[in-house]
Simulated assay, not measured.
Amino acid sequence: MATMSRRQQVLSSYRALLRATRNAFDGDHRVFTAARQQVRQGYETGRNELTSDPKDCHEIDKRLEHASGVALLLRSNIVQGELQPGKTSKENTATVDPGDSVAQSEVGGVYKLRIHKHTELGDNEAVKGGKTSLAGTAKKINWNY
């Protein structure tokens, strides 16, 4: 199998990042647009700074690896929460300082989390045991409803 050209690798990583922003920020137009703008700006900067000169190949490889890591983080570790109006939690453990920017209606509110099939679901044992990595702790979930 032939290896991808450097241009194909860059385009592939760009598309992967755009897909990851769609997964992570679907339904939040403001954040979705800002994330996509940030991705575009980063790639435009790279296009203007780097050439196909062999001395830049190492830098391009580093940036491709970084883009891959960011896409994985967005896809698996970002969870959006939406405040459910009129619903409150039975356990209200949060306290609000009058000078705090948290809206009073959000304290003790119920949030609906948008967890999707790519979301990494770790267990509390990894945190309690003092592990510094969650690798291998993801739960298997049947996503066929």
Results as ranks from 00 to 15, higher is better:
residue 46 G to M: 03
residue 86 G to P: 02
residue 84 Q to R: 05
residue 39 V to H: 00
residue 82 E to C: 08
residue 62 K to C: 04
residue 75 R to V: 00
residue 70 V to W: 01
residue 88 T to P: 07
residue 81 G to D: 02
residue 77 N to A: 02
residue 49 E to Y: 03
residue 53 D to L: 12
residue 52 S to H: 07
residue 44 E to A: 07
residue 40 R to D: 06
residue 43 Y to L: 08
residue 84 Q to D: 04
residue 75 R to K: 10
residue 72 L to I: 06
residue 42 G to S: 03
residue 50 L to N: 06
residue 67 A to C: 13
residue 76 S to F: 04
residue 52 S to V: 12
residue 70 V to A: 11
residue 65 E to L: 15
residue 71 A to C: 07
residue 68 S to H: 12
residue 56 D to S: 09
residue 52 S to L: 10
residue 44 E to R: 09
residue 72 L to W: 14
residue 86 G to S: 07
residue 48 N to L: 04
residue 90 K to H: 09
residue 85 P to K: 12
residue 88 T to A: 03
residue 41 Q to E: 09
residue 73 L to F: 13
residue 77 N to P: 02
residue 67 A to M: 04
residue 64 L to A: 00
residue 90 K to N: 05
residue 71 A to L: 02
residue 60 I to K: 05
residue 72 L to V: 12
residue 62 K to A: 10
residue 81 G to H: 04
residue 83 L to K: 14
residue 61 D to L: 07
residue 69 G to N: 09
residue 74 L to V: 05
residue 83 L to N: 09
residue 84 Q to P: 09
residue 59 E to N: 14
residue 64 L to K: 04
residue 66 H to D: 07
residue 53 D to S: 06
residue 87 K to P: 14
residue 53 D to G: 05
residue 68 S to Q: 14
residue 48 N to D: 06
residue 78 I to V: 15
residue 53 D to R: 11
residue 42 G to K: 06
residue 41 Q to D: 10
residue 40 R to C: 03
residue 50 L to Y: 01
residue 54 P to A: 05
residue 81 G to L: 12
residue 82 E to H: 12
residue 84 Q to I: 15
residue 69 G to R: 14
residue 74 L to A: 10
residue 74 L to T: 03
residue 76 S to R: 13
residue 69 G to T: 13
residue 52 S to P: 00
residue 56 D to R: 13
residue 64 L to D: 02
residue 56 D to N: 13
residue 47 R to E: 06
residue 42 G to D: 01
residue 74 L to M: 15
residue 83 L to P: 11
